[in-house]
Nucleic acid binder design. Sequence first.
DNA 1: TCCGGTAGAGTAAACGTTCTATTGGAGAGA
DNA 2: TCTCTCCAATAGAACGTTTACTCTACCGGA
Lengths: 346, 346
Amino acid sequence: MKHRVEKTALNMRAVAERAGVSSATISRVINGSSAVKPETAERVRRILKELNYIPNPIATTLKYGRSNTFGLIVPDLVNPFFPEFLLAFEQVLVENEHELLLATTQSNEAKLLTSVRRMLMRQVDGVVLMGSEYETRAVEPLFERRIPIVTLDRRRVQPGTGDVSFNFEGGYLQAVEYLYGLGHRRMGFLGGTKGIRTSEIRLAAFQKALEHFGLTYYPELIREGDYRVDGGEAAMVSLLDAARRPTAVLTVNDLTAFGALRALHERGISVPGDMSVVGFDGIQMGGAVSPQLTTVRIPAREASQACIQVLGRLRDNITRRGMSVSIDVEFMVRRSTGRAPRVRAR
Amino acid sequence: MKHRVEKTALNMRAVAERAGVSSATISRVINGSSAVKPETAERVRRILKELNYIPNPIATTLKYGRSNTFGLIVPDLVNPFFPEFLLAFEQVLVENEHELLLATTQSNEAKLLTSVRRMLMRQVDGVVLMGSEYETRAVEPLFERRIPIVTLDRRRVQPGTGDVSFNFEGGYLQAVEYLYGLGHRRMGFLGGTKGIRTSEIRLAAFQKALEHFGLTYYPELIREGDYRVDGGEAAMVSLLDAARRPTAVLTVNDLTAFGALRALHERGISVPGDMSVVGFDGIQMGGAVSPQLTTVRIPAREASQACIQVLGRLRDNITRRGMSVSIDVEFMVRRSTGRAPRVRAR
DNA sequence: TCCGGTAGAGTAAACGTTCTATTGGAGAGA
DNA sequence: TCTCTCCAATAGAACGTTTACTCTACCGGA
């Protein structure tokens, strides 16, 4: 006798046999679809519980080519915002009885291609693409197979895709308003990587916020970063060389702000005594450092819900018009911001 | 005509037709399984590429009840070590042509039950269980269905399970050795939650390290924490009340160390001037705070590989003896440790 | 010529679910 | 009794892949 893997767990037919009905009836009871005599249904339900039946969605996926799975492609998990989004995304999916397929690309095109292939193989019903920049060529197969795509903060849509972005204008407006109220008039900005669309959008939002309060925008107080700690540190160090320093700096994200804090701490510049610092993202770690970071929180859960909602609509509607959603952010005052110092000398 | 979902993408039979062979031959070419005439194989391969064929592993899963998927159940992603492990785990899986099924439990038993159910529905070939404590009852269904289980740092195995743990003894030994070399003789310890096995193991490892260097273990310099920042901060604050303070503190993990740093910073106690602090885990963020945290790094990639290897063995072997693997850790000197202060007065 | 071996390829069933088409009765009306 | 309608439930095909079994053609040896 050949070696055979023990298999064939408990399936609908076995349940059906036990209940003295056909597998179709079991299916109907489980899905509550069509007319089943109440007493039959009750009996079936009892037996399902008794046998501890667990359905096999794989079979359904095979039959319909739909997996109730959404893919999430992230560049990496180094930026803590990504895991926090992932966590929320997974929770929302599970609440909606969907599954998650996670792929990381390390900002590497070959891995992006692999990720897309995995998505296709696993018959995902839609894909969320984090990281504002990506190769169009690599995601082409998704378009070809009409898989709905939602990007995060890409600010661009095509037919069959959606975009969920964050309200940077609102966020920086609240932050600037708060700092203005504390007497700050001279604010710097530690930005993102040059040439990336979202960097420009964030900087523009900062500038607009200044204008809204009649504050001067000083180009010499603007620095480039790279969305990471090191870039933020370097940007802050460079900013400290300015002829007249700002009394507060806003940043493009929390990691950049962490870099700024480190630069300031190492130079003995007190935060918030001598300088106020504001982050953006609202990652958990912001509450762990000292001083705790004042920041603008991006609500990961709402963003996840928006992504899933948009994916659902794109899947159901053949209209396939692109959809844009903007998520409101929330200013969080913590300890890295305070009154503007009275006198500032270099 | 009924509404019908556009489906039936490109399957083996279509490729077969195009190549003038049967689907069996296509399958054989793809899997390199049995004798196919080289020229036929070549022609098939060309057509596969030409048609851009993507296989559907769902069908295979249905047939064999094996999905080439490993599940990962984590309590949450708040502790940055978890996402870092997750990232490594995903990468290693993809390299080995496996898939990941992620589930988070928020340390909530109902969600753990749901997670286990998801694992079973998706026909996973094995499950990695993070978080050293879990309800045995909740994972019972995995045992019943003979799904291999690997726990992380649980230090206990049963038939059909494995455990991957970390070499705390080695880690604390290196840390204490380094501090000893810097002149520290009086070391404190900020531990984990009481009553958890791994907390005891870590504390014992610290104690053993002290003994190894002939140092005194001062019970009054030991505090409980909760593996989180707040717990670490409270523990540090309490430790500062000690009649004679230590010159260095070791901690149960990096978050605890962050809490300690925050407590010290807020009280104007210089690190490492007045007090040295050592973390454990080696999370990325340790390099972002100021001062950068000296710590003991747990290599997430090696741990992931070990988990996957053990799961593979458990799946293949019917022997099903429990397996234990210990992962070596690596001491990383950064900026939160320095020479012991000459004179210490309260 | 016949037999057996072999290379190469094809046939068809199976996995678990869903749903269309169909069947079996029961009841009602003629 | 026959026919029609309606309710409940069943039979069976389909999804895409793999593989045990089968088939064919060819070759060599007796």
